[in-house]
Simulated assay, not measured.
Amino acid sequence: MTKFKLCTSFLIAFIIVGCGQNPFTGKSTLALVPNSQILPMSFEQYNQVLEESKVIKEGEQAQMIQRVGLKVANASERWLAENGYPEYTDNYKWEFNLIDDEQVNAWAMPGGKIAFYTGILPIAENEAGVAAIMGHEVAHALANHGQQRMSAGQIQQAVGAVGTIALGDDQQSQQIFATAYGLGSQVGVMLPFSRKHETEADEIGIKLMAIAGYDPDEAAKLWMRMKENSGGGGPPQFMSTHPSNDSRIQNLKNLAEDAKKEAAKFGVTSFQN
């Protein structure tokens, strides 16, 4: 067996073995890096960010972030238990922190570590707006999107290495391949992969916010405000890690009624703005 065929066979086996499952979609997911490795790294990095940031511990806004975060996390655990995954978050350590920073941003790390920046709160506008953001970030953590991105990055590197091996010792061809492959895999694979995660987090998150008792109609309104705040600009969707504002708004509008129906299964029929 040639070196190229051996590497290709190993790569295929590596991918097949390294798969998990998303409980919300039922689809197989990339899981080449195990949670036993990811979660300790995530918790350490999250704590480092908090140490280097101005974390707001007291006051109405900090209390709201904690309150909304716990309600959405509890909603997710109710959904998981009801759908046959009662132990899914056993290794999670939910944590919700508000950071004093003008960035219009919020993010999640594997294992339930969520951060909000004060800069996004005026756009959230109300508690339901915060819940829409929180649902999205909690969904990222639950769907193991961080694990999938790390796994996809490993595959991207491995395929590049296999392609280089196939070209032998021709350095010029290797350089041309590396440039073309780097751009092509980024635009054609990694960016769509990231946009898929964002859409998936929207779809999961809007259900979680509704089960938590927040009006899912507020999710589309939030993104209308996000679009207005950005001036409606941004790169073309195919060059972005996120869906366009317009497609996101329309998608959330379409999902709102299904989210209310999902919440009704848990006895939630009235919603907070």
Rank of each mutant, 00 (worst) to 15 (best):
T2S: 15
K3G: 15
K3H: 15
A13P: 12
F14N: 11
Q21Y: 07
N22H: 00
P23S: 03
T25F: 03
T25P: 05
A31D: 02
V33G: 01
L39C: 07
S42L: 13
Y46D: 13
N47A: 14
V49Y: 15
V49K: 14
L50A: 05
I56H: 01
Q61H: 03
A62M: 10
Q63G: 08
G69A: 06
K71P: 02
N74Q: 14
E82I: 10
N83D: 07
Y85D: 02
P86V: 05
T89P: 06
K93H: 14
F96S: 08
L98M: 13
D100W: 02
V104A: 04
N105L: 11
A106D: 08
W107P: 06
P110D: 13
P110K: 07
T118K: 07
G119H: 07
I120Q: 05
L121Q: 04
A124V: 11
A128L: 10
G129C: 02
I133M: 14
G135E: 04
E137V: 05
V138K: 00
G146P: 05
R149T: 09
M150P: 00
A152H: 04
A152N: 10
Q154Y: 04
I155R: 13
A158G: 09
V159G: 12
T164E: 09
I165S: 06
I165M: 11
G168P: 02
D169Q: 15
D170L: 10
D170R: 06
S173M: 15
S173V: 09
S173Y: 11
Q174Y: 09
Q175L: 14
Q175W: 01
I176T: 15
A180W: 10
A180Q: 14
V189I: 15
M190G: 03
M190S: 12
F193K: 06
K196Y: 05
A201S: 11
L208V: 04
M209G: 04
A210L: 08
A212C: 03
Y214H: 07
A219D: 07
A219I: 12
A220M: 03
A220P: 01
W223F: 12
R225A: 06
R225W: 08
R225Q: 07
S230P: 12
S230W: 11
G231C: 06
G234C: 08
G234Y: 08
S244C: 07
N245W: 11
N245T: 08
D246Y: 01
S247Q: 13
R248F: 10
Q250V: 09
N251Y: 00
N251S: 09
L252Y: 00
A256Q: 01
D258G: 13
K260A: 03
K261C: 08
E262Y: 01
E262R: 01
A263N: 04
K265W: 06
T269H: 13
S270L: 12
F271T: 13
F271G: 15
